[in-house]
Design a protein around this nucleic acid. Structure first.
Lengths: 222, 222
DNA sequence: ACCTGAACACCGTTCAAGT
DNA sequence: ACCTGAACACCGTTCAAGT
């Protein structure tokens, strides 16, 4: 939506990149509660510049998270061509868990409150679209039970990532172990006894995480 | 371990209770980031009194969480007598998810960092003990696959609780829906294809969440 | 012993002054 | 346009003075 934006001045663009890089490095090393002062210093800019380039610390985090989600979405899209539809879906899930290991802090950001961020929501919508295609394809091939939806699966991934938590650092195999459990839950064999309730919709999601506004460029298009 | 402590003076004990009650109410209503100033006010004490009764805000939260976990543990212990071992285990899991709905804030506290709290860890150890008995019993009866451990199941519960998140307020059935998925993952039928890796141990857990010390009464016993 | 509120430290955010 | 650091607001925590 925010496509028509005049490019930043050269130094501003350079600062933006430096801040993103510094923030990403700092967050990966020490978690999301590193101060903006340190990030600014690592980026070689003044403290005020952080808030000139990003409306808030949360938006700075969101910008990085959005990048990460776009990566995952691209990976999922590529897997739509996998010869075995079921394996395509599970390769995607496995990939998500692996990504989490490399930067836990960023994944933590997706939990709860950050989902209300407009930009993150847009990125997530694309990811859900691809996930939906992967799931449908796996269901058509008979590998996955018919009564789950893409948002069920997304919730399972989120749960898995949260569940293994710091454990992943102790036992690198814990991820694949719980992926096996997830596989069992999703298998068409397990579909013999159907799930209660109904699969969540994106509308449900919108109600659960009411948007909180982001960097809307003022009012109307310039 | 901290059994031999002389009782507090009457007013101190009264303040302690008032603070716990006020904190519990405030946390339930508005989440864990209500200020200690407000909690003190609701309890009718000065701001400094909070830190006289509890070493930090985190300890105040921990005291409430420990109570909650003890409740859950008691419930689990009662279910060890359930006629059907499998249903006993699943009733316990269902109960945990229901508890979460009533006070989400407290459950969020169990995630990540708070697990390093010594008192919470002790309470959790008891819960794991009971959960282990429930799981073993369900395995002996043939209802649950043999290759999962109590800590696998604990991680699944945690993941489920985190995954459904605020969704639970939108769709009250989402909990049982995902409990059904969990049931499928744990069923002995799913055990046909065994899990990779090994079940986590409490020692693994200790390494993943190094204890960070709590209200140890100074150095030695008085 | 315990209570209290003023004072401190810390961190996200704003803004007037500078280029 | 953009950059900067001093100043502000907020919140957890400490502590000297009071009972």
């Amino acid at each position: 939506m925010a496509e028509g934006e005049r490019p930043l001045r050269a130094d501003a663009e350079r600062n933006r990149r430096a801040l993103l890089d510094a923030a990403e490095a700092a967050f990966s090393e020490r978690g999301l509660d590193v101060g903006v002062a340190e990030i600014a210093q690592r980026a070689g800019v003044g403290r005020g510049t952080v808030f000139r380039r990003f409306p808030s610390k949360e938006h700075l985090i969101a910008a990085i998270v959005v990048d990460r989600m776009a990566d995952a979405t691209a990976r999922g899209r590529a897997l739509l061509d996998a010869p075995d539809a079921g394996e395509g879906l599970f390769a995607f899930l496995s990939d998500m868990v692996a990504r989490r290991q490399s930067d836990r802090a960023l994944f933590d950001a997706i939990a709860d409150t950050f989902l209300s961020n407009t930009e993150i929501r847009a990125a997530q919508a694309e990811l859900v679209e691809v996930l939906d295609a992967l799931v449908s394809r796996a269901q058509d091939s008979g590998a996955v039970r018919a009564d789950v939806g893409a948002l069920d699966v997304l919730m399972l991934i989120k749960g898995l990532c949260e569940a293994i938590g710091p454990f992943q650092a102790i036992d690198p195999n814990i991820g694949e172990r719980h992926l096996d459990l997830m596989r069992a839950a999703l298998s068409s064999a397990a579909g013999a006894q159907p799930l209660r309730g109904r699969t969540p919709t994106v509308e449900d999601f919108d109600r659960a995480f009411p948007a909180r506004g982001a960097s809307q460029p003022d009012k109307a298009g310039a």
